[in-house]
Write a protein that binds this DNA or RNA. Structure first.
Length: 624
DNA sequence: GTTCTAGAAC
DNA sequence: GTTCTAGAAC
């Protein structure tokens, strides 16, 4: 239930930790403890019961379980009414007979509540081959993006026919166009046009139902589903996108973010769906392909102003990209089945020369999109220097931050050109650098407490505790711990001593304070700076999880440890990852967890526990 | 780094 | 209804 929470450890003082994944596990655990007599005991250790249940519910949902809007567990977890968009709430239509006079080979299947009527299909779909090779997709661009249905149906039928012809040797590859309503105009148009083209109805058909419940409600197994995504690949909005993200849970969101940040109209991206996703567990969906089509809605981004020449081209590209990506998944699956090679192949990885080509093209396509679309033009370090030279160092002055061109890391680019990727810095991240390079310009600022050739001591403008100062190195090119080498050791030692000196000075004024000296693993601001921060964290500027975790998790690297590490290894390699900043909030003294910043702050205002033992060693803390 | 704000959580 | 967070923008 506590999905983002740190797992408890035996070292925290527990003797036995059991993980329960579903109600059954919980009951077993409760029964186990209920059965204990006064002198009974259980073995110590960590006991993780393997998940058999379909989904791990969030704690809020667990507590609300009695709510009648949530469907009973017996039929598998269902989307609660409050989570679905109005169009997803409509009950699925009852099975209807195929319309009379329908001569085409296409079949219309109605969403089925009655399992018996779907038995035949379900049986067929249970075959591993078949379920691995069915793509269910919604009509792209015809809902919110208001693309003309007649033109769209032509494009769907054309691209599907081309695709199936290309794969006519793989008979069990199937494409299924899905829509919610039996009255769907796009379904009937596609059905009609497909019949005219005599497309094999076992390989391409339409289906009435909810794309997020094809297996459980419709008896149709589709391991790959397409999503009519938005360009930011964000959950929400409405329609299919909202429904898929909602049904797939957080893990789809995370998995998507790993694959791409944004999508260009006419392209698609494959996202392997983590096995913890309810959509994976319940419906057997292993991949979601996000597709972005052309937009004919003036209220939405990339509006094409009714330019159907461009629009049709983009819609063609969108379906081609979708089907090609689907093919790469199928090939990956076939590769696994046929070759049974030792090393695992990626879900989209193929093995034949053709596959390699396709994979390369695909990855090129997605790489192009990956992390790039939203980024502004890159600047060289020199350009950044030029750009910021003219500016004042007050890093919160908006006139500065808006005048300097932003720049951010584009690892892909630097890697490709063979240059080692080095972090680039946003305009707001330059202030300490400016100050370190030209302290004389700011000598009247009362924030500067000390200046030497090697460093500057500055009051943090947004202190995160009663006392919070920075010792900023003045060495040009030394921006973060990643840049620190053995040659910088004397500097680091002197920065440390300066920090200790200031801490002692503060202790003369308030002997109750306790100080910690250290660096952020990944600093937000350029120019190596050492934090000297009192451990009360009593400050209105400490506002969020990132602030807290940057000073109280391994993201904060104690100066003494950094120095020792560089002495031993020549560099500071143990730096922790930015992911840790999103962790739960725990008291830095007693390690208790708190649900939000205000509650954490009221706790730490009173917590008198001693500091964790590792902080009590090696002078990591400075106190009176 | 902060500010702003939509939407989630309460 | 208010509080709080997280992500975008700067």
């Amino acid at each position: 239930m506590l999905q983002k929470k740190e797992t408890p450890l035996l070292t925290e003082g527990f003797s036995r930790i059991m993980s329960c994944n579903d109600d059954g596990d919980i009951k077993k655990a409760v029964d186990l403890y209920n059965a204990l007599g006064p002198s009974d005991s259980l073995p110590s250790g960590i006991f993780c019961q393997k998940s058999k249940g379909p989904v791990q519910v969030g704690i809020m949902k667990f507590l609300k379980k009695g709510d009648t809007s949530t469907v009973e567990k017996s039929s598998g977890p269902k989307i609660t009414l409050s989570e679905t968009k109005p169009e997803q709430q409509k009950p699925l239509p009852k099975h209807e007979k195929v319309e009379e006079g329908m001569s085409c080979p296409m079949e219309i299947e109605k969403g089925l509540n009655d399992k018996n009527e779907n038995e035949e299909h379900a049986k067929e779909c249970d075959s591993g081959d078949v379920d691995s090779c069915t793509l269910a997709f919604p009509s792209i661009s015809t809902a919110d993006f208001q693309f003309d249905l007649d033109r769209a149906s032509d494009i769907i039928v054309d691209t599907a026919a081309d695709f199936l012809q290309k794969f006519d040797n793989i008979t069990y590859i199937r494409l299924v166009l899905v829509d919610l309503s039996e009255k769907s105009r796009i379904l009937s148009l596609v059905k009609e046009k497909a019949s005219k083209k005599s497309i094999d109805c076992s390989r391409f058909f339409t289906f009435v139902g909810d794309i997020t419940q094809l297996h459980t409600k419709g008896g149709l197994r589709c391991s790959v589903i397409a999503n009519a995504a938005n360009w930011r690949l964000k959950p929400g909005g409405g329609g299919v996108n909202a429904a898929i993200f909602s049904a797939a849970g957080e893990s789809l969101h995370h998995a998507t973010k790993k694959c791409a940040d944004a999508l260009r109209p006419g392209t698609s991206v494959v996202v392997p769906l983590p096995s913890i996703s309810p959509l994976h567990q319940r419906e057997g969906v292993t991949h979601v392909i996000h597709v972005l089509g052309p937009n004919m809605n003036p209220m939405r981004p990339d509006y094409l102003k009714n330019d159907y020449i461009k629009g049709s081209k983009i819609l063609h590209e969108a379906y081609n990209s979708l089907f090609e990506n689907f093919a790469s998944i199928v090939r990956g699956h076939m590769g696994k089945q046929n070759e049974k090679l030792g090393p695992e192949m990626s879900a989209s990885g193929g093995t034949s020369p053709n596959d390699t080509k396709m994979k390369r093209e695909d990855s090129h396509g997605s790489e192009r999109m990956k992390k790039h679309k939203l980024l502004p033009p890159i600047m060289t370090v020199k350009q950044q220097h030029e750009c910021t030279k003219a500016n004042m160092p007050n890093y919160h002055d908006k006139s500065i931050t808006s005048s300097a061109a932003p720049n951010q890391a584009r690892e892909g680019d630097t890697k490709k050109s063979g240059v080692v990727a080095s972090k680039t810095w946003g305009s707001w991240a330059q202030a300490l650098y400016e100050l370190a390079m030209h302290p004389e310009k700011y000598k009247n600022t009362d924030s500067i407490m000390e200046t030497s050739d090697e460093f500057i001591v500055l009051k943090d403008l947004y202190p995160k505790a009663k006392r919070h100062v920075l010792v900023i190195s003045r060495t040009d090119g030394l921006d973060s711990l990643a840049d620190v080498k053995k040659e910088h050791l004397p500097l680091l030692r002197r920065m440390h001593s300066a920090g200790v000196k200031w801490a002692q000075k503060f202790l003369e004024e308030d002997a109750s304070l306790v100080f910690r000296l250290g660096y952020h693993s990944v600093p937000s601001m350029r120019q190596l700076h050492l934090h000297i921060i009192s451990q009360d964290f009593d400050s209105t500027s400490l506002k969020n999880k990132k602030h807290w975790n940057s000073f109280t998790t391994p993201f904060f690297r104690d100066s003494v440890d950094v120095i020792e590490e560089i002495e031993q290894h020549g560099s500071a390699t143990a730096s922790s990852d930015e992911k840790i900043l999103a962790m739960e909030l725990r008291c830095h003294r007693c390690r208790s967890a708190h649900p939000n910043i205000p509650k954490l702050k009221s706790h730490i205002a009173n917590c008198k526990s001693s500091f964790p033992s590792h902080l009590l060693q090696k002078n990591r803390l400075t106190s009176s």
